[in-house]
């Protein structure tokens, strides 16, 4: 029972990170129908900012805020430079553009910073452990659960209570009508990218805290997870992205925990098999977007 409780906690913690990652993709997809595969590189940008801040002994909270801000600025910059000129292109061209942005950024990091990973040593108190009865939880996993809840709450407030948030929700449902209402498209889209960048920055801080280093190719795995999670959840649906993130995290941890040793090397196959079954059952995802727009 303790073993199960511990694994459940592990699953929730991992699912939280995946949910944040998937949300970052969903915010942009819901408005411009772009699956931004350069989302992972926004995380790398945040990671490098964290690296530089820690190198110069900037206090951790300031470093984290700077990293999140840098990712938001980078997201807005890629929107302005790469995606805005492609605004009227079809979703496939947009997706290819995002691959190009991702590839260019990776090579820039490799040749401009270093191909080798850079260490991001975090204060030792962050690698501590808290014990709750029979289960133990590391500071970083605990932080990821808390940060996920907090981010979801703040995001909901933003989307429901602010003009820009409402505009973004409206844009997700019908962009043309939104423009007819006199809302400026560029501003809504730029805001969506910046928001997505902030989410990338937050998840980057958690991701880097777990791995202790940043390297040019760091963004690949998280963006893949985010993509799978947002497909399971329903592309373009924000609550779907969260549900998909948790579903993926829980599936990964439970398969890792309960598969027999001989089948363990095939864990990813089992997880993806589970994803296929999920999609057969609900082809539009767990919580489909209201417009029903799909890639």
């Amino acid at each position: 029972m303790d073993f199960f409780l511990q694994q459940l906690l592990n699953a929730v913690s991992l699912g939280g990170i995946y949910a944040l990652l998937a949300l970052g993709l969903a915010v942009v997809f819901s408005i411009v129908a772009l699956i931004n595969f350069a989302h992972g590189e926004l995380m790398t940008v945040a990671g490098y900012v964290l690296f530089v801040c820690i190198l110069y002994a900037v206090p951790l909270p300031i470093a984290v805020v700077a990293a999140i801000a840098a990712a938001a600025v980078a997201a807005a910059a890629t929107e302005r430079l790469a995606f805005r000129p492609m605004r009227r292109a079809d979703p496939t061209s947009l997706m290819l553009t995002s691959f190009a942005v991702s590839a260019i950024l990776k090579v820039l990091f490799q040749n401009g910073i270093s191909a080798r990973p850079k260490p991001v040593p975090l204060p030792p108190d962050l690698s501590g452990t808290l014990t709750f009865g029979p289960v133990r939880l590391g500071t970083v996993p605990l932080a990821s659960i808390l940060v996920t809840c907090l981010s979801l709450f703040a995001l909901t407030l933003f989307l429901k209570r602010t003009v820009m948030g409402k505009a973004m929700r409206a844009a997700a449902e019908d962009f043309q009508v939104l423009r007819l209402m006199g809302i400026r498209a560029n501003r809504v889209i730029a805001a969506a990218f910046a928001l997505s960048g902030m989410l990338a920055g937050i998840s980057a801080a958690l991701w880097v805290a777990q791995r202790g280093s940043v390297d040019p190719l760091m963004g690949f795995v998280p963006v893949l997870k985010a993509f799978v999670a947002s497909v399971i959840g329903g592309l373009g649906s924000l609550s779907g992205a969260v549900a998909g993130g948790f579903a993926l995290g829980i599936a990964e941890v439970l398969f890792q925990a309960y598969l027999p040793d001989a089948a363990l090397p095939f864990r990813d196959a089992f997880v993806l098999g589970f994803v296929v079954l999920l999609l057969l059952w609900r082809p539009d995802g767990l919580i489909p977007a209201r417009t029903g727009r799909r890639s």
Partner: peptide, 15 residues
């Protein structure tokens, strides 16, 4: 034990 390269989640394995 077994893990997947680059996935960096070891909670289940270390438990």
């Amino acid at each position: 034990g077994s893990y997947s390269l680059g996935q960096q989640d070891f909670a289940a394995e270390v438990t």
